[in-house]
């Protein structure tokens, strides 16, 4: 499974637009980490799709794409619309990336 995620918009939207998305391959994870990531992805997968930030201004948007077994699912949420499950997945990915 490959997970790609990126952040867009916000006060630093112009700077952020030039930064590449981050990529994580579960092959590079320990078994424990891979199981945890699977669990987090499964928790948000039913809510796949896009939600616009509504009246929020300068809120950041996040896109997480999960590629697994030839299937690809993309989720887009903003600071103003993300669910706890989405926040947990994004937080886990960012924590993992920060430890690299």
């Amino acid at each position: 499974m490959k997970v790609t995620w990126g952040a867009y918009g916000g006060q630093a939207a112009v700077i952020r637009l030039g930064l590449p998305p981050k990529v994580l391959d579960t092959d590079a994870l320990s078994e424990t980490e891979a199981v945890e990531l699977d669990r987090l992805v499964a928790a948000v997968a039913p809510a796949a799709g896009e939600e616009r930030p509504g009246r929020a201004r300068d809120a950041m948007s996040y896109t997480i794409t999960v590629e697994d077994g030839g299937r690809s699912t993309t989720l887009t949420r903003s600071d103003a619309t993300m669910s706890p499950a989405f926040a947990a997945l994004l937080g886990w990915l960012e924590e993992h990336f920060a430890r690299q």
């Binding site: 916000g10 006060q11 630093a12 509504g54 009246r55 929020a56 201004r57 300068d58 809120a59 950041m60 600071d79 103003a80 937080g91 960012e94 924590e95 920060a98």
Partner: peptide, 28 residues
């Protein structure tokens, strides 16, 4: 707001500030 959050935003009713990641951005 959040950890290493590089932003501040208006959610339609109120303001939210991040602390920045300490690498590129500091407290908003």
């Amino acid at each position: 707001y959040d950890k290493r959050y590089n932003n501040a935003f208006w959610d339609g009713h109120q303001m939210v500030f991040g602390d920045g990641d300490g690498k590129m951005f500091s407290d908003f």
